[in-house]
């Protein structure tokens, strides 16, 4: 729309967006969940929605240390789509409604093509995918608050975190207008986090500040052994938190509470 005289320069640079989340900084306030829901035009949940049928593209889990009470510590783990480089959801989708964008490294869900078979949900080990069990409905007047950059989803399709694709597109347009080759943006969750625990960066760029974080010894990823190559990194200086990474190294950590 803002094209015209300014010739948009198309960049061939390939991005691989990833995030580093500092679990030691996370207070479990849930601001990221709220910002995510607002950014992505999630309809208010109908009365009959339960914890298991709601849509929380970003979800903060509360995890308790398996230790006796006075010493027991608590960690909050924000979980969303891990934007795997080898996404199991993409391989299983029968109609190519899931696509790993080679230009951004973001796993895109084409909701307008999805027919709701939910195979991708079964395939995802991170439970990062959500199904629209109900028709989305907004109370009268609330449609004024909708984000025009993100299309609301209809009932019967699967959706998930797309690293605020709307924001990415805006940043892309902005960069093109400026003739820049550097697309930087903040997803809603990272922007909203009061503790600045969520950081996004380009994993392809060796100069990106995120590389320093990834290099730190306290950085780990969840379920790496499954071989899905997630692009979301987590940090904690506590051993018991780091042990959450793999299932067999974290026996006893199985009591989970949602924040």
């Amino acid at each position: 729309m803002a094209a015209g005289a300014n010739e948009m320069k198309k960049t061939n640079r390939k991005y691989r967006y990833g995030m580093v989340i500092d679990l030691d900084a996370c207070t479990g306030c849930g601001a990221c969940m709220v910002a995510c829901a607002a950014e992505n035009n999630l309809a208010p949940a109908p009365a009959k929605v339960t914890d298991r049928t709601s849509i929380t593209l970003m979800r903060v889990f509360q995890v308790k240390e398996p230790a006796p009470m006075p010493a027991r510590k608590t960690a909050f783990v924000p979980m969303m789509c891990m934007q795997c480089d080898d996404p199991p959801c993409e391989h299983v989708c029968p109609q190519q409604a899931v696509e790993l964008d080679p230009r951004t490294g973001i796993v895109d869900q084409m909701v307008q093509r999805c027919f709701g078979c939910r195979y991708c949900m079964a395939a995802c080990p991170f439970h990062a995918r959500y199904f629209n069990w109900f028709d989305p409905e907004w109370p009268a007047g609330m449609e004024q608050t909708l984000n025009p950059a993100v299309a609301p989803r209809m009932r019967g399709v699967v959706e998930k975190c797309d690293l605020c694709h709307g924001r990415f597109h805006e940043a892309q347009d902005r960069a093109a207008m400026e003739g820049s080759d550097n697309i930087t943006y903040q997803p809603a969750c990272a922007e909203a986090c009061p503790a600045q625990a969520i950081r996004i960066g380009d994993l392809n760029n060796p100069d990106d500040p995120i590389q320093v974080q990834i290099g730190k010894p306290e950085t780990f990823q969840f379920l790496v052994k499954l071989g899905t190559k997630p692009k979301m990194y987590y940090q904690s200086k506590h051993d018991w938190v780091k042990r959450l990474a793999e299932r067999d190294s974290a026996n006893g950590n199985s009591n989970r509470r949602d924040a």
Binding site: H91, P94, Q95, R113, F115, G116, R118, Y119, G156, V157
Partner: peptide, 26 residues
Amino acid sequence: IDVGQPLRSWFTFWHPNVHSMLTEVT
């Protein structure tokens, strides 16, 4: 009935993902 959008079932024939077992099944 089980799929969320039954009217889109034909999409599998239009945009088949040949790597998916479900495509083969369909």
